[in-house]
Computed example of a mutant assay.
Amino acid sequence: MDLLTPDDLTHLRRCVDLAREALDGGDEPFGSLLVDPTGVVLREERNTTGAGDQTRHPELELARWAAGHVAEDVRPTCTVYTSGEHCPMCSAGHAWVGLGRIVYAASTAQLSAWRSGWGLPAGPVLALSINEVAPGVPVAGPASSLADELRELHRRASGVDG
């Protein structure tokens, strides 16, 4: 893992805002950006699982979009920023499409610990880190400065009181 830069934190802040928009829209609180090597945001996505399709994660949507809109030789130089570390499905999609670095605000371990602490069951898929699924993908995170805010968004999403 490498350290987070001020630019990384700016992009992660936008991801948290997208996560809040997702939650306010009735979806799980996750948001992501695809950024080209010059720092230009190519696309934003937020979780859209509320309609019943649990595969509509923003990270996978970005990978699908990149496959059709970003040149294959450019994809490895792009960065995906996301409010939460990729799940195994999204990690695999990211790797298969050939995208580059992933920067996340909250880790899978953090989210799992929060959910467990609230007495919630584990999800239907193992809570693996990105590199357990896609060992060649460079990753950075979590961003400790955003942890409390993300924890609160996920607490609200879970329906757990205070």
Rank of each mutant, 00 (worst) to 15 (best):
R56D: 10
R43G: 01
T55V: 00
W65G: 09
E45Y: 00
S32C: 09
D53W: 02
E44M: 04
V70D: 15
H69Y: 12
E45G: 00
R43H: 11
G50Q: 01
E72W: 11
E59Q: 11
A66N: 12
E59R: 01
G68M: 14
S32M: 04
R64S: 13
V70S: 13
E59G: 03
L34F: 06
P76E: 12
E59A: 04
E44S: 01
G39K: 06
H57Q: 10
H69E: 15
H69F: 13
R75D: 13
V74I: 14
H57C: 03
P76M: 14
T49P: 00
V70E: 15
V74S: 10
R43C: 06
R56W: 04
E44P: 00
L42A: 00
Q54S: 05
A51H: 00
E59W: 05
V74M: 12
R64K: 15
G52A: 02
H69M: 13
T55M: 08
V70L: 15
V74T: 14
P76C: 09
E61Y: 02
T49E: 09
E61W: 03
T79I: 11
T38F: 05
V70A: 11
G52I: 03
T38R: 09
E61T: 04
H69I: 09
T49Y: 03
T77R: 14
T79W: 07
T48G: 01
P76A: 04
T49F: 02
D73C: 02
P76Y: 07
P76W: 11
H69D: 14
R43T: 01
D73R: 10
C78N: 07
G39W: 06
L33E: 05
A71R: 15
V70K: 10
V70W: 10
T77I: 01
T77K: 13
P76G: 08
G52F: 03
A66E: 11
P37S: 09
T55S: 09
T79N: 10
T77Q: 15
E44H: 00
T38P: 00
A51V: 02
V41Y: 08
C78D: 09
T49N: 08
W65D: 12
L42S: 02
V70G: 08
L34G: 01
V74N: 09
T38C: 02
T79H: 03
R75N: 13
H57R: 09
G50E: 07
P76Q: 07
V40N: 04
C78F: 07
V41C: 05
A66T: 10
D53P: 01
G68D: 15
L33V: 04
V40M: 13
A51T: 01
Q54R: 07
R56M: 08
E61N: 11
D73Q: 14
R75A: 12
S32W: 05
V35C: 07
W65H: 12
C78R: 07
E44D: 05
D73P: 04
D73L: 13
D53R: 06
S32D: 12
A51Q: 06
L33D: 03
G50H: 01
E45L: 00
D36N: 07
R56L: 11
